[in-house]
């Protein structure tokens, strides 16, 4: 039995923070995020920063794959474009304000998102997956070229700049945390809001039934491309923060493996659900760390056993993705839902 909801106008019904539990949860989460930089050690802050960056990218991917129903195996390319744009910009303007870099990266990645999205007007499903995968290979190919080496470092990779925030260089993970996490929160909320009104509703309609969406007045051309642009811009933003966060980048960092990892985070968390990217990214980025610890523990620091680590991590990842598809196709969010349903109904029913 669900306890009644009391609302006096439709505005209240349209709200999303409509139960006390949700309000409380949001406040607690914000407080936790504020506390982490003061209680976490450097390693934990490294993980936290990395997770926040990935969350941005996966939230973006969710807009395209989860909500619009278009497949992409090429989002690593947008990540790369964001990161390399940042590096290139800082060569000319060493102290560029990070938010400006961020916006330029998003525009650049968004423009390429537009180009990647053009095939989506003609091809669907698998064909689109392979088209985006191809585009990813092509983008990385150009980044590796010698004639762009002065900007990109070519195949040898390049060192990345630090962000300057009003004259302070952000060096420690703690300092960077305060740049990354607020941006992640704002971008997360923006994406979540999209699906509360006209724009996001149109995307979901395209996912559910593109022909009837079009006949209801939703321009497929317009919305599919915008969806591509948004998700690419999110990955571009993640790329910028990635460049600020890590000391160097290589073209290989952004290949198919990256694109697939982003997808796995999304599937593990739950596609087309706002909390999915958060749950999925935390799980997927924590697993290798746990494995690493386990490997270290079992091999008692024996270095020769460490060579087994990377194949085992690959196998675990592969099995996890398949396991989710078979046993929990809606991702971690559906476990979360079951938990809350249980809490809501307790003690009246199970």
């Amino acid at each position: 039995m669900i306890i009644g909801e009391y609302k006096t106008d439709y505005g209240q019904d349209e709200g999303i923070w409509n139960t006390w539990a949700k309000k409380l949860g949001f406040v607690v989460a914000l407080l936790l995020l504020l506390l982490i930089p003061f209680i976490g050690n450097d390693y934990q802050l490294l993980m936290a920063g990395q997770i926040a960056i990935f969350v941005i990218a996966v939230v973006g991917l969710n807009v395209l794959v989860g909500y619009t129903g278009l497949m992409s195996l090429g989002h690593g390319a947008f990540f790369a474009l964001g990161a390399y744009t940042t590096v290139a910009l800082h060569q000319f303007f060493p102290h560029l304000f990070p938010l400006i870099t961020l916006i330029i990266s998003m525009v650049v990645a968004g423009f390429f998102g537009f180009l990647f999205g053009l095939p989506s007007l003609r091809v669907k499903g698998l064909y689109l997956a392979v088209a985006t995968l191809s585009a990813n290979f092509i983008v990385l190919f150009f980044i590796r070229q010698d004639w762009l080496e002065h900007l990109t470092g070519g195949r040898g990779g390049i060192e990345t700049p630090n962000a300057y925030f009003f004259g302070t260089e952000l060096i420690t993970n703690q300092q960077k945390y305060f740049l990354i996490v607020p941006i992640a929160i704002v971008m997360f909320l923006f994406a979540q809001n999209l699906f509360r009104s006209r724009f996001g509703r149109a995307l979901i309609a395209i996912r559910d039934n593109d022909h009837s969406a079009e006949i209801l007045g939703i321009s497929l051309f317009n919305y599919k491309l915008k969806s591509f642009v948004i998700s690419a811009a999110y990955c571009g933003a993640a790329g910028t923060l990635w460049a600020y966060f890590f000391p160097a980048i290589l073209p290989e960092d952004f290949g198919l493996n990256m694109s697939i990892t982003l997808l796995i985070c999304l599937v593990a968390g739950g596609m087309g659900r706002s909390l999915g990217p958060i749950f999925g990214t935390i799980l997927i980025l924590m697993v290798p760390e746990l494995l690493k610890m386990g490997a270290f523990y079992f091999s008692e620091g024996n270095a020769s056993a460490q060579i087994y680590f990377s194949p085992i991590r690959d196998i675990v990842f592969g099995l996890m993705i398949i396991g989710f598809l078979i046993f929990e196709p809606m991702g971690l969010v559906s476990i979360w839902d079951r938990f809350w349903r249980f809490i809501n109904r307790w003690p009246f029913a199970k």
């Binding site: 499903g125 997956a129 997808l263 194949p311 085992i312 690959d314 993705i321 598809l325």
Partner: peptide
Amino acid sequence: RPLLGQSSFAMILCTIGLIWVLEGSASL
């Protein structure tokens, strides 16, 4: 077999998961 009848998206992802399983197993 357990994915029979699921969306083609799920199937594609499953074979992608397989890539990692096979690659890891081969190097083990």
